[in-house]
């Protein structure tokens, strides 16, 4: 029976001592402890979050880099291609121009040659004509003394001309 009868003295001391210790621990132990744990948890969470963010940023930057790199590669290829095309075009143009020019020159040359030839032929013809005239003069002078011979020469000359 004594076991289940609470003693007033122990109850009193328990009530007083426990209350005091509860108050002291609450004020000087539990408050700072729980606050520190809470703060630390907050800072760890913040650190984790910022690490996550940094990782995301990193990934994004890497993706950006990749993109820029790709873009620049495409760009450089394009520039290369364009320049090559341009070069080809220049060469082609130059070639065409040269062709045209050379053709023109050849044409010119041909025309000059033709005209020279015509001139030369004309000259030759004139000279031949003059020669012929002088020959004819001479012949005429010599031949005209003999009528039959005269006509024979004229005939011969004319035959020769026809051959030319």
């Amino acid at each position: 029976m004594e076991l289940v009868t609470p003693g007033i003295g122990l109850m009193f001391w328990m009530l007083v001592s426990f209350s005091i210790v509860l108050y002291i621990l609450k004020k000087f132990a539990w408050k700072p402890i729980l606050q520190s744990i809470h703060d630390r948890e907050d800072s760890i969470e913040a650190a984790l979050r910022s690490a996550d963010k940094a990782r995301d940023d990193m990934a994004r930057i890497q993706a950006d880099n990749e993109k820029i790199l790709n873009q620049s590669r495409i760009e450089s290829e394009k520039i290369l291609r364009e320049s090559k095309e341009l070069g080809d075009k220049y060469i082609a143009d130059a070639r065409k121009l040269a062709n045209v020019e050379s053709t023109k020159m050849i044409e010119e040359a041909k025309r000059v040659i033709e005209s020279e030839k015509v001139a030369a032929i004309n000259q030759v013809r004139n000279e031949i004509a003059e020669l012929s005239i002088s020959i004819a003069e001479k012949l005429l002078k010599s031949e005209l003394t003999d009528m039959s011979r005269q006509s024979k020469i004229i005939q011969n000359s004319l035959d020769n001309f026809r051959l030319n």
């Binding site: 289940v4 109850m11 426990f18």
Partner: peptide
Amino acid sequence: NIAVTMVLALF
């Protein structure tokens, strides 16, 4: 001790 547990329960 029942006095001690009684005070705790009382709290």
